[in-house]
């Protein structure tokens, strides 16, 4: 039990600590792929540090929701990192939440982000919230369907159990899982606000979604939101890894197993960074109302996955 909680803490620290480096890695790859020279991999940390030391400028009519949101978003990120089996499946807190709860926790964070966007009463904030909720209202069911497909073929919605089932030598590639995987990749791009759905680097009013909601933030509030955003990307990749490629994860929490799992994790993260950058450089940002086709395709894929499970397996 004690060992379990140590792993738990280790995992939370790992996600909080490694998320900015992963973001830096993606940025670095992106610069290289576009023939630019890149900032250091630690640049996100420097940005965060700068923001933390700055004063806050708060709009006159900001309510408590505006000030509460950054902490909540960061808190949900930390909570989720205690639940996803990243290093080990032997997590005491993994009983707290299964995959459905996980999706709902992200939804809670989004709910408050959208409210905070509307709190000040600028046109940008409302626009961001409206668009974000539109994207979420198609992306979230698609996400749930992808997850349902995996949990059906594993006979459980508990993440630790899913990882163990997929990891076991008896598991084979099933058509439903392939559909679910494609849907999951598409939704990860949407949910973490990457190209072609949203561009984290832009502040152009016609295109921005997530950035529009947090436009009025500054200082430590902004730092927490940015950090939580990086954690979200990290967590979605970890979730994908746990659902579809859990090789190398420690089933029992031994020091050797954990270190091995850590090395595997770094390799997988490095590789998924490359995939993300390839997608991002390969596609242009889509027009807002073309997104329904993109997200609808993801939803359809996931539903097909589940249907093929019911029909074939």
């Amino acid at each position: 039990m004690v060992a379990g909680f140590i792993i738990e803490l280790l995992q939370i620290t790992l996600v909080i600590g490694l998320a900015p480096i992963f973001a830096g890695w993606v940025k670095m790859l992106k610069c290289w792929s576009q023939g630019r020279s890149s900032p250091s991999i630690l640049q996100p940390y420097r940005n965060l540090l700068k923001l933390f030391s700055k004063d806050i400028i708060l709009a006159e009519n900001a309510s408590w929701i505006f000030r509460f949101m950054p902490y909540l978003v960061f808190g949900t990120g930390a909570m989720v990192s205690a639940i996803i089996p990243i290093l080990s499946t032997d997590l005491p807190l993994s009983l707290t939440a299964d995959v459905i709860v996980l999706v709902a926790l992200f939804a809670t964070a989004r709910f408050f982000t959208a409210l905070a966007g509307m709190d000040i009463g600028t046109a940008f904030g409302g626009m961001g919230s409206s668009r974000e909720m539109m994207i979420a209202s198609i992306a979230e069911p698609a996400m749930l369907m992808a997850i349902f497909t995996v949990s059906l073929s594993c006979g459980s919605t508990s993440l630790a159990r899913i990882v163990e089932t997929i990891y076991s030598p008896a598991s084979v590639i099933k058509p439903s899982l392939v559909f679910a995987f494609i849907a999951f990749v598409l939704i990860t791009l949407a949910e973490t606000g990457r190209v072609p759905v949203d561009n984290p680097a832009t502040h152009l009013e016609l295109t921005m979604v997530h950035e529009a909601m947090i436009l009025e933030y500054s200082g430590r509030h902004l730092a927490l939101i940015e950090w939580a955003g990086m954690m979200k990307l990290f967590l979605y990749i970890s979730l994908g890894v746990a659902l579809f490629a859990p090789m190398g994860i420690a089933v029992y929490a031994t020091p050797a197993g954990i270190s091995l799992a850590f090395i595997y994790l770094l390799l997988k993260l490095g590789f998924s960074g490359i995939v993300i950058v390839l997608i991002e450089t390969g596609f242009a940002k889509m027009r807002l109302f073309r997104l329904t086709e993109f997200l609808g395709a993801a939803f359809l894929m996931a539903t097909l996955g589940m249907l093929s499970f019911f029909m074939l397996e």
Partner: peptide, 10 residues
């Protein structure tokens, strides 16, 4: 903590 300044909306 850093200070919190209240200002008009941008």
């Amino acid at each position: 903590p850093g200070k919190i300044h209240r200002g008009p909306i941008w």
